[in-house]
């Protein structure tokens, strides 16, 4: 895609430096640094509430960090002009956790919206391009429906089609597989792989599905307690002996249920005359 040739492979497309984000004095991100390189698929892993979506919102410039900086394509998101930010946003496609399609428009119009807003293309061209994007995600014949008439998986695919509509260099995808059955989730994984191959996009995916992460990731980063505890390829992560990573990989629960305490409570309850 445009711009891919001129730049050295070593310059990161997205560079997150010492980013701190806190809500009510609680650090959700506590000095995160992460580089994402051109053409790679980076998967952000981490438990629920570990700050994955928060990090993603920093990367797409929806929120400013309390300290630290986020640089995308050489532009500092906190310091750039609105014009630069606008240009940058047009080179990024974002598919949100819950699709965020506009219910007042058909699926087709949702996908066409960025084209209508940002290009002067003729209506017929826009229709053709929209149809192609929908075809890429396998929704070519559903364009006329309203988003409410789509299933959860179809909505996510439509959101990807909309994210792709301006041919972005960077695709950002929050929780593609959450709430989907394994077959649809696997289809979305294949879609991400296919897109990356076809368009050489840089892809950032948030997920907590290990299977999906291992299928699509070039590199993975694991968030825990506001810090990145591991960044590396899947082999590197598998070899890691960090207890939290092992726990995540081996699906060990945090606390086992305290059966002894329950028994005792139950006994006391039965003996007492509270019933």
């Amino acid at each position: 895609m445009a711009g891919a040739l001129g730049e050295t492979a070593s310059a990161p497309v997205i560079s997150v430096r010492d980013v701190v984000v806190s809500y009510d004095a609680r650090h959700v991100l506590d000095g995160i640094s992460l580089d994402i390189f051109r053409g790679e698929t980076m998967v952000l892993l981490g438990g629920s509430g570990s700050g994955k979506s928060t990090l993603l919102r920093q990367i797409i410039g929806l929120e400013r960090p309390q300290s630290g900086q986020v640089v995308v394509n050489g532009v500092d998101l906190a310091k750039c002009t609105p014009r630069e930010l606008k240009k940058l946003r047009r080179s990024m496609g974002v598919a949100f956790q819950n699709a965020a399609l506009f219910n007042s428009m058909s699926v087709e119009d949702n996908v066409a919206l960025p084209l209508r807003e940002h290009t002067l293309l003729a209506e017929s061209t826009i229709r053709l391009m929209t149809w192609m994007k929908l075809a890429v995600v396998g929704l070519a014949e559903f364009g006329k429906l309203s988003p409410q008439e789509l299933s959860g998986g179809m909505k996510k695919r439509a959101a990807v089609a909309r994210a792709l509509s301006l041919d972005p260099e960077i695709l950002v995808f929050d929780e593609p597989s959450a709430g989907l059955d394994p077959i649809v989730a696997a289809e979305l994984d294949e879609l991400i792989l296919g897109l990356k191959q076809a368009f050489n996009m840089t892809v950032v995916v948030v997920t907590h599905e290990m299977a999906s992460a291992f299928r699509i990731a070039d590199r993975m980063a694991m968030l825990y307690n506001g810090s990145l505890i591991a960044v590396g390829t899947r082999e590197e992560l598998e070899r890691s002996s960090h207890p939290r990573i092992r726990q995540f990989l081996d699906r060990v629960p945090d606390k086992t249920a305290d059966t002894a305490a329950f028994d005792q409570y139950f006994q006391e309850y039965m003996q007492g005359d509270s019933v």
């Binding site: 919102r57 929806l62 240009k87 946003r89 949100f96 965020a100 399609l101 506009f102 919206l113």
Partner: peptide
């Protein structure tokens, strides 16, 4: 709430 406003902003609208 459904992030549609965020979606608009990321689409530079």
């Amino acid at each position: 709430v459904t992030e549609e406003i965020d979606a608009l902003r990321t689409m530079a609208i």
